[in-house]
């Protein structure tokens, strides 16, 4: 039996009909986004619409259909274990915002 009104993925159960404001804030926090109140309201609406659409797909009976993880031929190509030089340091550091002692320097982060 499939519960109506829920998208049920393997990972999470998200109530689809109305995403709460707290959920929008939580998602924004996970994505490290700072949203204004207006944005929160707008994204709540938009994300809810997406989830509503997913909920419609959930109405289909997929009982005997294996999940599709990819539409490509399902076999990963494998590489021989042979090391090769990567990029020179200066090349890789070119776009870094800040570097020091041949390392990328980042601002302090909350632990």
């Amino acid at each position: 039996m499939r519960r109506q009104g829920f998208t049920q993925s393997r990972y999470v159960i998200i109530p689809a009909m109305s995403l709460t404001l707290e959920e929008v804030e939580h998602i924004a926090e996970l994505a490290r986004l700072e949203l204004t109140e207006a944005e929160k309201a707008r994204y709540r609406e938009q994300l809810s619409a997406v989830l509503d659409y997913i909920a419609r797909l959930q109405e289909l009976d997929t009982e005997n259909i294996p999940p599709t993880s990819s539409v490509l031929p399902a076999r990963t190509p494998l590489r021989p274990d042979v090391p090769r030089p990567g990029l020179p340091l200066e090349e890789l550091m070119k776009n870094a915002a800040d570097t020091e002692q041949e390392q990328f320097r980042v601002p302090p982060v909350l632990d």
Binding site: E100, Q101, Q103, F104, R105, V106, P107, P108, V109
Partner: peptide, 11 residues
């Protein structure tokens, strides 16, 4: 690596 309040990253 934390180095006197500076954070340096080695990939």
């Amino acid at each position: 690596k934390n180095d006197n309040g500076r954070r340096l990253i080695d990939f």
